[in-house]
Structures are given as C-alpha cells and as structure tokens.
Design a protein around this nucleic acid. Structure first.
Length: 264
DNA sequence: CGGCGTGTTCAGAA
DNA sequence: CTTCTGAACACGCC
C-alpha cells in the first residue's frame, strides 16, 4: 500500500496518538523488521522516552524522541502503522509501542523494509542522504531540472533519488492524467508537458492524502490495474500494460501516445 | 505448482 | 557514467 500519501497518513496517526506520552513498553514480536539495531537496543533506547512531532520525507516516516535518538519507519509494499486502544496483536504486528492510552503497532506482512534507529540527526541525514526532494515540497523549477534524465519518464519519477515519494501506482495515475506516455524519454518532454506532469502530481497527491490512502478506487486508473480487459475511464480504449523500470505499467494508448498521432 | 505484487538494493549487462 | 534487467527479500492470493 504505502506510497507518499499512505505514509503521510501514518505520520498523522503517530502525531495524533503517540506524541508527548511516555513509551511504556517496546515489544518486538519479529526482529526481522529491525534494520541495523536489535530488540534489546530498541527497547533500551525508547522505553520511557516521548515521541516528538513526526515528519515525513518521501516514503520515510521520521519520529524524533525527547533525546537525540530518532526512529525511522519504512513500510515497503505492505507495511502500516496502526493505533489500537486494546486487543490482541494481529499476526503481522511486528513491533508494538505501548503507551498508557493504547498501542502503536508497526504492522507488515512481507517485511521488505522495517525500522531503523538513528542516534541523532546526523545519522538520520546519512540514512536519507540519497533521497531527492519530497514530491510535495519540490518547486516546479527544481522539478523540471531534476527530471531531465535520459531514462524513460516513469523510471525517472519512480527514482527516489530524483523525487522522493512516488511509487508505481501513483506514477501511472499521474501520467495518465497528464496524458503522457510512461516510456517517453524524460529529457524530451516539452515545457508544457513537464508542467502538466507537475500539476497532476500535486493533484493526485492532494486527492490521495485527503482520502487518507493511495489511491482511491473508482474513476482512478488505479482501480483498473488487475483487470486485463479494463478500459480507459476517459475514452474507453482498452488499456495497455507492460513493464517499465521493472514494474507493471498501465496506460491508455490513445490518451498517452508515444508521440503525436501514434500509439505506444 | 507457478505467477504476481503499492518497495528497495545489488550485481551484472548494455 | 548512465540506464536497464533480474534476482533477492517474505508472504498471501489467485
């Protein structure tokens, strides 16, 4: 599930329920999600501490504490962060932070990513150093400069070191709305085309965050990924699918031609 | 049983 | 140097 809007939702969960209250207990139910730390160290460092206001960069959730330590979450393809007031843990609750009023649970099926514990802000910087600017923060000018690579546009937009936060579903949705073929070389887009991608990126992100997840089904292209006979919601042309940047890619050959007048 | 998947990383190839 | 592909990670669902 998690792309930028989902992680923003998790950030809000943490901010709403888990900021400013002492962490009473850290229960690591599956140490397989701990990256570069151990259950012992995680508990020793966090027990009795408070989380301060969390931030987000791309798909990373950054949770500072009232000491120098900072907890970082990445959710891979199947992770989430849940607040539960009571009840038995679910099968995929890998780490549980217990507070007086409830529990914050890092839930993840596939364990493709996990939790990291940084000693201080400098270590956070080192972990996030390779990321480009957040997709919601980047200015139109910086966006234009950064996506000017030779690779196919979808690969560029998915590259977290170029722009942080966009994933497979979001990029397909953005390019469908902007009516640009995902296989176009990024550095051959016109100025207006780059502006369209930027505009639709903002719009898709805003709408997704408002709904609290990405992406809402319904009229979105994303609701049609799994159906091989699905039609374009705009023009009813049969959607096409292929592989770009190693990921399943869905597009409309009519709305998103490779070049003027041709289909992909 | 085989194939697939909202993410990332790495080795190796082009 | 840049870009691309496939495999790996782990698990549930066709």
């Amino acid at each position: 599930m998690p792309e930028l809007p989902d992680v923003e939702g998790f950030r809000r969960v943490l901010a709403k329920h888990a900021v400013g209250a002492p962490i009473r207990r850290v229960l690591v139910r599956d140490a397989g999600v701990l990256r570069g730390t151990t259950a012992r160290r995680l508990a020793d460092v966090l027990r009795g501490r408070l989380f301060r206001k969390p931030s987000r960069h791309g798909k990373w959730l950054i949770a500072p504490t009232d000491r120098s330590a900072v907890l970082l979450f990445h959710f891979g393809m199947t992770g989430s962060l849940e607040w539960e007031r009571h009840g038995a843990p679910q099968r995929h609750d890998r780490v549980i932070f217990a507070f007086d009023r409830g529990e914050l649970r890092y839930r993840d099926l596939r364990k493709l990513q996990g939790l990291r514990l940084a000693r201080d802000d400098a270590e956070v910087g080192a972990i996030l150093r390779a990321l480009g600017p957040d997709a919601l923060d980047v200015s139109p000018r910086t966006f234009d400069e950064r996506i000017a690579g030779r690779a196919r546009l979808k690969a560029i937009l998915m590259d977290q070191s170029v722009i942080a936060g966009l994933g497979n579903l979001l990029v397909d949705e953005i390019l469908w709305r902007a009516r640009i073929n995902p296989a176009r070389p990024a550095n051959r887009l016109s100025g207006p085309e780059r502006a369209a991608v930027f505009r639709e990126m903002r719009r898709v992100l805003r709408d997704s965050i408002r709904v609290g997840r990405v992406p809402p089904r319904g009229v979105w292209l994303t609701g049609r990924r799994d159906d091989a006979s699905a039609k374009c919601p705009r023009c009813a042309t049969r959607l096409r699918r292929g592989t770009i940047a190693g990921r399943t890619t869905v597009w409309c050959p009519r709305c998103q031609p490779t070049r003027r007048g041709r289909s992909a």
